[in-house]
């Protein structure tokens, strides 16, 4: 009987375990929430679980029977834990998915703006011009905006009765002082500073002033940028070479230049230069952009260079004009009214 009893104990425990397993797996498969799962974990695999209860009864079993029941018990535990872990993972994944879903943003809404200022279009053009010529070995020279008659006119070979020297056309402060009407006096100063040392290669940007009534194409204050090269053996063909290189860097590789004879008191020969320019409608036209020439021997002399030894060329252009061409601007006054709606258009490359 004892053997029967013992047998039945073992059998009973095995059955209990299998029943427990069936019940646990059934319940666990149906678990709906992480909280339920936590409760079931306690119920089926915790220290106070039914499984633990059953295993506690193993003490009554004989040494032969114990491993048999133990093996079954382990299988049951593993089966239950496997389901619990699977369910656990499922809930974590579900929760993550829910959070990701909840964190969704409207990507079409604007971002927080990064501060965005802008360079004035005239300085933008001046910097671009400066950079081109810096790359060609020029230095940048500057000079006073209030000039003497000597630097503004006389040293540039403008005769006393030249119309530009009239009170009507320039802003005089005294008989001898005036707002410079061109950036050319900077060239004279650069020549003086060079003390006869060549080569001299400078560009001279700056504001200039002329008595003009403001309208769409005139402004009493505007900007020029001039260039000057002096050395032994500088030729007019070098001027052409320089201008072609400049024009292509500024207006594109396809640009061509055309030179027309002209007259400036400070150069001889004097030249006006046209470049090919493609208009908004695609038409390619010649547009005048600068004046230039070989430095007049009198100007060389006054700047301290012997015209029998040295020669040079000079060129000059209006910054506003270049900007107007480059950006297709219709009114020069925009540059000085500083309307943000105008300026902001240049806050980009």
């Amino acid at each position: 009987m004892k053997g029967d009893f013992i047998m039945s104990e073992t059998v009973q425990m095995k059955e209990q375990l299998l029943t427990l397993k069936a019940e646990a797996l059934d319940v666990l498969e149906k678990v709906g929430t992480p909280k339920e799962l936590d409760e079931l974990r306690v119920k089926y695999s915790g220290k106070k679980s039914a499984l633990t209860e059953i295993l506690r009864g193993m003490g009554k079993l004989s040494a032969e029977e114990r491993p048999v029941v133990g093996q079954v018990a382990n299988e049951v535990r593993e089966a239950i834990e496997e389901v619990i872990n699977r369910k656990q993972e499922h809930f974590v994944r579900e929760e993550t998915n829910a959070r990701l879903q909840a964190e969704k943003v409207d990507v079409t809404l604007p971002g927080r703006p990064m501060p965005q200022g802008g360079i004035h279009p005239l300085n933008k053009v001046i910097e671009e011009l400066e950079d081109i010529f810096l790359g060609m070995g020029y230095r940048v020279a500057e000079g006073p905006q209030v000039e003497t008659d000597y630097y503004n006119f006389e040293a540039l070979n403008l005769p006393q009765n030249h119309p530009a020297r009239d009170m009507q056309d320039s802003f005089y402060l005294t008989e001898d002082l005036l707002m410079r009407t061109q950036t050319s006096p900077i060239q004279i100063r650069a020549m003086e500073a060079a003390k006869g040392q060549a080569p001299l290669k400078v560009i001279c940007p700056g504001a200039v002033y002329r008595r003009d009534d403001d309208d769409a194409t005139h402004s009493f204050q505007f900007h020029q940028i001039e260039g000057l090269v002096i050395d032994k053996g500088i030729r007019m063909s070098d001027l052409k070479g320089t201008l072609l290189q400049f024009a292509r860097e500024m207006f594109g590789e396809q640009t061509e230049i055309r030179l027309r004879p002209s007259f400036f008191p400070f150069t001889e020969p004097s030249v006006e230069v046209d470049v090919t320019f493609t208009k908004k409608n695609g038409e390619r036209v010649w547009i005048e952009i600068l004046g230039c020439g070989m430095v007049h021997p009198k100007v060389l002399e006054m700047g301290g260079f012997d015209p029998e030894v040295y020669s040079g060329f000079a060129f000059g252009m209006g910054v506003e004009r270049i900007a107007i061409l480059k950006y297709g601007i219709d009114d020069i006054r925009h540059f000085y009214s500083n309307d943000m709606r105008f300026l902001k258009q240049f806050s980009r490359i």
Binding site: Y138, G233, S237, Q245
Partner: peptide, 28 residues
């Protein structure tokens, strides 16, 4: 020289690079 140049034609004057010593370009 200018009279000769303008009648010879500015277009006919060659396009050359500057010869002689090169200078470094730099801002102050």
């Amino acid at each position: 020289i200018e009279e000769v140049a303008r009648l010879y034609g500015y277009d006919n004057i060659p396009t050359t690079p500057i010869e002689g010593a090169t200078t470094p370009g730099a801002l102050t």
